[in-house]
Simulated assay, not measured.
Amino acid sequence: MTNESIRAGLLGLGAMGVRHARVLGGLEGIEFVGAADPLGNPADCPRGVPLLPSLDALLELDIQMCVVAIPTEEHEKAGLRLADAGVATLIEKPLAVTWDEGLNLVNAFEAAGVVAATGLVERFNPALMNLKHRLGEGELGEIYQIATSRQGPLPDNVPSVGVVKDLATHDLDLTQWVVESEYQTLSAHTGSRSGRDREDFVAAVGRLDCGVIVNHLVNWMTPQKERRVVVNGERGVLAADLLTADLALYAHGYATMWDELATFRGAREGEIKRYALEKHEPLWMELCAFRDAVLGLPSEIASLSEGLNAIKLTDALLHSANTRTTVEVSGQEPAGECRQ
Results as ranks from 00 to 15, higher is better:
Ala248Val: 11
Gly266Ser: 12
Val97Lys: 10
Glu74Ile: 02
Thr222Gly: 02
Gly266Cys: 15
Gln176Asn: 11
Gly25Glu: 08
Ile63Cys: 02
Leu11Gly: 03
Asn309Glu: 15
Glu137Val: 04
Trp177Cys: 13
Phe264Gly: 11
Ile146Gln: 07
Gly113Met: 12
Ile146Tyr: 06
Leu140Met: 06
Leu313Trp: 08
Asp84Gln: 13
Glu328Lys: 11
Leu247Thr: 01
Ile6Lys: 02
Ala276Val: 14
Ala293Ser: 10
Ala83Thr: 07
Ala78Lys: 04
Leu135Arg: 04
Glu4His: 08
Thr314Pro: 01
Thr190His: 00
Lys273Asp: 14
Asn41Ile: 08
Asp197Leu: 14
Pro153Asp: 13
Arg150Gln: 03
Ala262Pro: 01
Ile91Trp: 04
Gly211Lys: 07
Trp258Thr: 01
Val231Met: 03
Glu139Ala: 14
Ala316Gln: 03
Glu4Tyr: 09
Ala239Trp: 01
Leu11Asn: 05
Asn157Gln: 13
Leu261Trp: 07
Val329His: 07
Ser303Asp: 03
Lys77Val: 10
His75Met: 08
Gly141Arg: 07
Glu60Cys: 03
Pro71His: 09
Arg47Leu: 13
His75Ile: 11
Asn215Trp: 06
Glu137Gly: 02
Glu101Pro: 02
Ser187Gln: 03
Gln332Ser: 15
Asp200Gln: 10
Ser305Asn: 08
Thr169Gly: 08
Gly136Gln: 06
Arg123Lys: 11
Gly195Phe: 10
Trp99His: 15
Ala204Pro: 05
Leu287Pro: 08
Pro155Met: 09
Ala108Trp: 15
Val178Met: 01
His280Glu: 10
Leu208Gly: 08
Leu140Phe: 04
Leu297Arg: 13
Ala88Leu: 08
Val214Arg: 07
Ala267Tyr: 12
Ala116Lys: 02
Ala116Val: 03
Thr175Pro: 01
Thr256Met: 11
Ala204Lys: 11
Gly40Pro: 02
Arg324Met: 14
Leu243His: 02
Glu28His: 13
Asp62Thr: 05
Thr222Met: 10
Ala203Val: 11
Glu226Gly: 05
Asn107Lys: 08
Arg196Lys: 13
Leu174Glu: 06
Asn232Thr: 13
Ala204Val: 11
Pro155Asn: 07
Glu74Gly: 03
Ala57Thr: 03
Leu131Met: 15
Leu27Glu: 01
Pro42Asp: 12
Glu199Ile: 09
Asn130Ile: 09
Arg193Glu: 14
His133Glu: 12
Leu238Asn: 09
Leu217Asp: 03
Leu80Lys: 11
Lys93Gln: 05
Val115Met: 02
Ser5Ile: 15
Gly48Ile: 07
Leu243Gln: 11
Glu139Leu: 15
Glu139Lys: 13
Asn41Phe: 08
Thr175Gly: 07
Gly17Asn: 06
Gly113Pro: 10
Leu51Met: 05
Leu27Gln: 07
Glu122Arg: 12
Arg22Val: 09
Ala168Phe: 15
Val214Glu: 04
Glu122Lys: 07
Ala96Phe: 03
Pro155Thr: 08
Gly296His: 06
Gly141Lys: 08
Leu105Met: 14
Pro71Val: 09
Ala240Cys: 03
Gly236Gln: 06
Ala78Asn: 09
Pro38Lys: 10
Arg22Gly: 00
Val294Phe: 00
Ala15Arg: 11
Gly26Ala: 10
